[in-house]
Design a protein around this nucleic acid. Structure first.
Lengths: 218, 218
DNA sequence: TAGCCTTATTTGTGATCACATTTGAGCAAA
DNA sequence: TTTGCTCAAATGTGATCACAAATAAGGCTA
């Protein structure tokens, strides 16, 4: 596993199992953990300076969300997806994310559009600098910023679950193929938001989602 | 003569935390736990003849799936849903379940249709006998039997997550209002399956799902 | 009766340990 | 090189405990 600086400082008001959970969740979602990499209780516990108990709870929670798979003997492994599974998750994203975007649309305001534009230019700069792996994090940041406006926590939670499952596989993709994904669709999404164009928004979201995942299947 | 332990006794090949998890999951999904009922680690552990450790893992996993809510102080409570949340979950069901049914359609065979019919008549009999609470379990059994044919585990997992969240609230509904839900839509689902009518199947699934949840909101 | 303070009980958290199983390295034989 | 075997190391599981925080209970005042 990649060494990480603790983004979340040690704060006694945040329980250890929660701290471990959040950090590992980010590592998985943003592709900092490779497929088939396995995580041991004692290893995770040591890395976070805690005992096995909170490490176990964090791993259990992550495997419940599909971020990790647990083998028959109880070991925890990062997911490695078959093409059929990727196709299934792509379908789920194209079902749920347009709905989230549509729900966010009436609540969109200028500050959000500026924020999305800023995220977008940040992605472009860093990807053109060769940091292709940053695309995963930036892209999810872009989508989440929009979907948060939908005020639909259960729906967003499901979508994040799907992102979690895709994380390690996406990372492997951007490592092998070194093509930068197209940022173009993000511009069309922002355009539809400005115009209040709901069908156009659904369509561009759908294209963005399926476009990224078609790369894996090819 | 040598002492024999009963065959139904604890099976060491299934870990205690898994056993506790499965049982509690059923209790929540089928509405055997009331909204706002809270579960304590020591209470659950004692009920299953285990220590706090496996009980904690089971509860953590359930709260990760949305079956339970955990308060800021770490206590576990069965979900009690607001109308907006119910509406959101209803939308999710009507997005995902028609897709699952559609994927199952080409794989449907006679044995499955017979099974669905049997489940259906069982529901009718027990509900007409006054066991309205059985409708929850029977209805989910019906839907799951169909969706299993879709061979889409990630999608089915998401749908079950939604069922989990609705469980306790549905129970409260069927306790207060004593109207029996209509079983009619199930017949139309079976009809569409026999005819291979994909649009009709999607429509009847959607009606069945939204119909049941409209009762709550009224 | 209602509201508030104090105290006793309950509860989640995290650490440590023993135990059985699994895993993997090393080596031998084909 | 490959396959199979042995054994030491690594690993998950579940139990127990101390501790601090939260909750409930009891009693007092107004």
């Amino acid at each position: 596993m990649k060494e990480h600086k603790p983004i979340i400082a040690k704060d006694p008001s945040v329980p250890a199992h929660e701290r471990i959970y959040r950090q590992l969740r980010n590592d998985v979602m943003y592709g900092d953990i490779k497929p088939d990499e396995n995580l041991t209780l004692r290893g995770v516990a040591a890395k976070f300076g805690a005992s096995m108990t909170p490490a176990r709870e964090a791993l259990r929670k992550l495997s419940a969300e599909g971020a990790l798979r647990s083998t028959y003997s109880g070991r925890y492994v990062a997911n490695s997806l078959t093409p059929e599974r990727v196709e299934e998750l792509a379908t789920l994203r194209s079902l749920l994310e347009p709905e989230l975007a549509s729900r966010a649309l009436p609540r969109v305001h200028n500050a959000l559009i500026e924020r999305l534009t800023a995220i977008n230019t940040n992605i472009e700069q860093r990807v053109s600098r060769g940091e292709t792996h940053f695309y995963i994090r930036g892209n999810l940041e872009f989508h989440r910023a929009l979907y948060l406006r939908a005020q639909s926590p259960a729906m967003l939670a499901l979508v994040e679950t799907i992102w979690l499952q895709l994380g390690p596989t996406l990372r492997k993709l951007y490592e092998t193929q070194n093509r930068a994904p197209n940022i173009d669709m993000h511009r069309r999404i922002i355009g539809a938001l400005k115009a209040g164009d709901e069908p156009g928004l659904r369509l561009s979201i759908r294209s963005d989602v399926t476009g990224a995942l078609r790369m894996i299947l090819s």
